[in-house]
C-alpha cells in the first residue's frame, strides 16, 4: 500500500513536470516566432527574386499562421520528430544526439570533481576545525565562489596555454592523429579537457564545500554525535560512518538540480574553450534563429533537469526511508 502511494505521488510529480515542460516549449515556440528577425535571411542570395524568397520561407514553414505552425509542430513532436535544423540541415534529434554524449561526459566529470573536491576539503576543514586550514579553506571558498568562470577561464588559458603552453586552449582532442591506441586517445581527451573541467568545477566546488562543512558543523553538536563520542568511537569513524552519510541527504537534492543544469550546458566554459557542448549549440541556435533547434535544446535541457532531480529524489528515498512519509504528505 505504501509503495503504491509512493508510486502515485511520483507519477503525479512527473506529470506536473511534463506539463510545465509543455508550457515552456509552447511559450518559447510563440516567443521566437513573434520576435523580429527572419531565419530565412541568411539563405537568401542577392539574386533571388521575391517569389523565391517566399518559397524559401515556405520551406521553413514560416509563411503559415502561428497557430497552424504550432499544431503541426505538436503533431510531429508527439511522434518524436522535432523538425529539421535550419543551420545543420539535419533532424534536430540527430544534431542534439551528437552533442549530448560529450556534454554529459564533460559535465559529469566536472560534477564529480566538484563533489569529491568539496567533500575532501570539507573533511580537511573539519579535521582542523577553527585552525589555520579551516579558516584558510573557508575564506578561500568564499573567494573562489566569487570568481566568475570567464575570469578564471581566461586566467587559466593565459597561464597554461599562452605562457606555459602545457595545455591546449581549445577543442576536445588532437585532430589528425594516426594513433588508434585507446589509452592514448583517452589521454588525449583528458589532456584537452583538463582545463575546462577544472574551470567548470571551480564554481561549484565552494558550494559543495560549504554544504558539507555546515552540515558537519550542525551534526557535530547533535546528541547522537556526542553519544558516539562519549562511547569512545574514534573521530574518524564518526565522520565517515555518521557525519558524511547524514549530510548527504540535503546535498543530493541540490546536486540533482545542479547536475541537470550542468548537463544542459556550461555556456561560458564552452565558449572560452570552444567545446562542442549543449550550451554553445543552444546559443548558436538562438543567434542563427534556428527555431527547431532552439525548441529542441530547451526541451532536452528541461528533460535532463527533470530526470536528474527525479533521480536525486529516488536516491534520497533509498538512503533515508523517513522521507517517504514527507513525500506522501
Amino acid at each position: 500500500m505504501k509503495s503504491s502511494a509512493l508510486f502515485l505521488s511520483l507519477i503525479k510529480r512527473l506529470t506536473t513536470s511534463v506539463f510545465v515542460l509543455f508550457l515552456t516549449v509552447s511559450f518559447l515556440f510563440v516567443l521566437v516566432r513573434i520576435a523580429p528577425g527572419d531565419p530565412s535571411q541568411k539563405f537568401l542570395s542577392p539574386n533571388l527574386s521575391p517569389q523565391l524568397v517566399e518559397r524559401v520561407k515556405s520551406s521553413f514553414q514560416l509563411d503559415k499562421q502561428i497557430h497552424e505552425q504550432y499544431i503541426s509542430f505538436l503533431k510531429n513532436a508527439l511522434t518524436g520528430d522535432f523538425g529539421v535544423s535550419y543551420s545543420f540541415h539535419r533532424p534536430v534529434n540527430e544534431v542534439i544526439a551528437e552533442v549530448l554524449p560529450f556534454t554529459i561526459l564533460f559535465s559529469l566529470s566536472a560534477f564529480i570533481l566538484q563533489l569529491i573536491g568539496g567533500l575532501l576539503f570539507a573533511v580537511l576543514a573539519f579535521r582542523y576545525h577553527q585552525k589555520f586550514w579551516d579558516k584558510f579553506l573557508s575564506r578561500g571558498s568564499l573567494f573562489l565562489y566569487a570568481v566568475p568562470s570567464f575570469v578564471s577561464g581566461l586566467f587559466f588559458v593565459y597561464l597554461f596555454s599562452v605562457q606555459l603552453q602545457i595545455f591546449p586552449s581549445s577543442g576536445i582532442k588532437t585532430v589528425g592523429t594516426l594513433e588508434n591506441n585507446y589509452f592514448f586517445l583517452l589521454l588525449d581527451y583528458a589532456h584537452h579537457l583538463f582545463l575546462p573541467v577544472l574551470v567548470l568545477s571551480l564554481t561549484g566546488l565552494p558550494v559543495y564545500f560549504k554544504y558539507f562543512r555546515e552540515n558537519f558543523e550542525e551534526n557535530q553538536n547533535k546528541l547522537f554525535t556526542l553519544y558516539l563520542r562519549a562511547n569512545g568511537i574514534s573521530e574518524r569513524k564518526i565522520l565517515f560512518s555518521h557525519l558524511i552519510p547524514n549530510s548527504l541527504n540535503s546535498i543530493i537534492a541540490y546536486a540533482g538540480v545542479d547536475l541537470g543544469i550542468l548537463f544542459s550546458g556550461a555556456l561560458i566554459t564552452e565558449v572560452i574553450f570552444s567545446l562542442p557542448g549543449m550550451g554553445r549549440l543552444a546559443v548558436g541556435a538562438i543567434l542563427q534563429r534556428d527555431y527547431p533547434l532552439i525548441i529542441g535544446c530547451t526541451l532536452t535541457a528541461g528533460v535532463l533537469i527533470i530526470l536528474t532531480s527525479l533521480l536525486a529524489d529516488l536516491i534520497r528515498l533509498k538512503i533515508d526511508k523517513r522521507l517517504i512519509k514527507g513525500l506522501l504528505n
Binding site: L124, I166, L187, D188, A190, H191, F194
Partner: peptide, 29 residues
Amino acid sequence: MFIVWKNIYIFFLLLVTIFVGCKKISTDN
C-alpha cells in the same frame, strides 16, 4: 585524518603527472 590529506595529495599528483606526461601528441609529417 592524515591519510585523507595524503590521498588528496596523491590524487593531485596523479592528475598533474598524467597531463604533463602527454604534453604533445605529434601530428603527421
